[in-house]
């Protein structure tokens, strides 16, 4: 796969530790929601470092991609992006890469997305892709962050949850909880998932009763009684391990649980 040179169009501080970088690609390659790019930095003395970053923008807009880069303490690539990269900078990359942790609109069963911190990145591409469709599957995003300041894409997600009856959003804060916070306040656990499943199952019944269309029938839970056809989980290793294991326990099929793990 060839290396290419992209140009940074914009840099946006999305949270104290996360910046969003919009990169213009030399050729507007298509990608699928959930894929990532490899980035390669080369120092003047020839030293190189490579890392992978997920695309958070929608595949509807190829040619420009948005990457979510969290500042990792001591991280050589993330610190360069956070401290040195400005619009106009040229960045070497190749991609798009990855084909399992992806979603395309021809999969129409309800989706469960579970994000931990910057693990929202590939899921955001899926969420945004879905939002461009006339007819889209029901979707629940469970988003776990440390503090209110770490809620990436907050306005966009809250607006979507407000306007789209088929998009549900659960945000949970695992550390500092501000005055007046009405969301969840603990790590995502079995009980939180059970509650979400119960709510989703009820919603599916309502939807079936209300419409009775073939689309609704297809979107109904699978025969095992699962409210979600597929789950995508992205975050730190411990986070992904615990949630994926619990989803297996609930009876979801192994193949319906897709994971992407960050960090050691």
């Amino acid at each position: 796969m060839d290396w290419q040179i992209a140009t940074v169009e914009s840099v946006h501080a999305e949270s104290p530790r996360v910046k969003l970088f919009r990169l213009k690609l030399p050729a507007g390659q298509k990608f699928s929601a959930g894929q990532y790019y490899d980035i390669r930095l080369t120092a003047p003395d020839g030293y190189q470092a490579q890392r992978s970053y997920s695309i958070s923008s929608s595949p509807e807009k190829p040619g420009v991609i948005e990457l979510v880069i969290e500042l990792i303490p001591g991280g050589e690539v993330s610190s360069y992006f956070h401290e040195a990269v400005v619009p106009g900078e040229r960045i070497e990359l190749r991609g798009p890469i990855g084909g399992h942790f992806t979603w395309t609109p021809n999969y129409i069963k309800p989706l469960l997305l579970v994000a931990g911190g910057s693990g929202i990145a590939p899921l955001m591409s899926i969420i945004r892709r879905r939002a461009t469709l006339d007819s889209s599957p029901r979707m629940l995003l469970m988003f776990s962050v440390r503090t209110e300041h770490d809620i990436l894409f907050r306005q966009e997600l809250e607006r979507m949850a407000h306007e789209d009856a088929d998009f549900d959003l659960t945000i949970t804060l695992t550390r500092a909880v501000p005055e007046g916070w009405t969301g969840e306040t603990r790590r995502i656990d079995a009980q939180m998932i059970d509650t979400a499943f119960d709510a989703a199952t009820g919603k599916t019944r309502l939807r079936e009763a209300g419409t009775g269309t073939p689309e609704a029938a297809k979107a109904a839970p699978n025969p095992a009684g699962q409210p979600f056809g597929r789950a995508y989980i992205c975050g730190g290793t411990g986070f992904v391990e615990s949630i994926a294991s619990y989803l297996l326990e609930t009876g979801m099929d192994y193949d319906d649980i897709r994971t992407e793990r960050f960090g050691p």
Binding site: W3, Y47, Y80
Partner: peptide, 21 residues
């Protein structure tokens, strides 16, 4: 000048001196 280095296998990030593993 950056344009001279514009090739798929050779570009330099001029300010990438920073922290290294």
């Amino acid at each position: 000048p950056p344009k001279t280095l514009d090739s798929s296998w050779n570009m330099i990030n001029n300010r990438f001196f920073g922290r290294r593993r």
